[in-house]
Design a binder for these strands. Structure first.
Lengths: 99, 99
DNA sequence: TAAAGTACTTTGTGAATCAAAGTTACATAT
DNA sequence: ATATGTAACTTTGATTCACAAAGTACTTTA
């Protein structure tokens, strides 16, 4: 592939999905509210990006409780990890030719 | 800034603009047609992204000739270089927390 | 009982993306 | 002189995306 952008993953063109993935690479499980605060998003905006990532099999959802409050957490899947690492590698390749 | 995506530059959310910039970081001057072929784009699509980059002061245009044919080339500006490097640094920061 | 929290979904708007077609200007081939 | 070609766009139109705001269903706390 000569085209330097050909290996970038379209799902990760979105800064928000990029942010979610990078948070989930480092934290085993993160709640909806923590993601919302870390990324400074409205509920709806976060929810829609999370569902895009979920539809693509990049993350999985755990519905649980903290005390008696509902608590939804998200974690990365193997496929998500692979796709994200692939995207980062593509970014690196693109940039490596600059040095 | 705690928000890991807060320092990313919106202009570079686009893979195409990212590609243009990375090519221009490495090549002093690149023609419209070379960019078109490298990035596998239609005329219109490339032209519109180039004008976005130009409007933002990230690249400059040189209209010249090769023999008697018109030849437009593009090169990065100081501001473009700074913005692009800033974006890459923000990406790196975001990713560094993963290691 | 009222207010607030969680995690959404729905709605609506504006912006972005892109291909395709049209345009302008010059060049070359017939 | 006419037709074809190439470069570099601009315009058009359709589709998709992003996002805020409001609405929903359920529970909890004051």
């Amino acid at each position: 592939m000569i085209n330097p952008i050909g290996n970038l993953n379209k799902i990760f063109d979105s800064r928000i999905r990029l942010g979610v993935m990078s948070i989930l690479m480092v934290n085993e499980e993160v709640s909806f509210n923590d993601l919302k605060q870390m990324l400074e998003l409205t509920d709806g905006n976060l929810a829609s990006h999370l569902s895009t990532l979920e539809e693509n099999g990049f993350l999985k959802v755990h519905k649980g409780f903290v005390g008696r409050k509902t608590n939804t957490t998200y974690s990365i899947t193997k496929a998500g990890e692979k796709a994200f690492k692939g995207h980062l590698a593509a970014l690196e390749n693109m940039i490596r030719s600059m040095e």
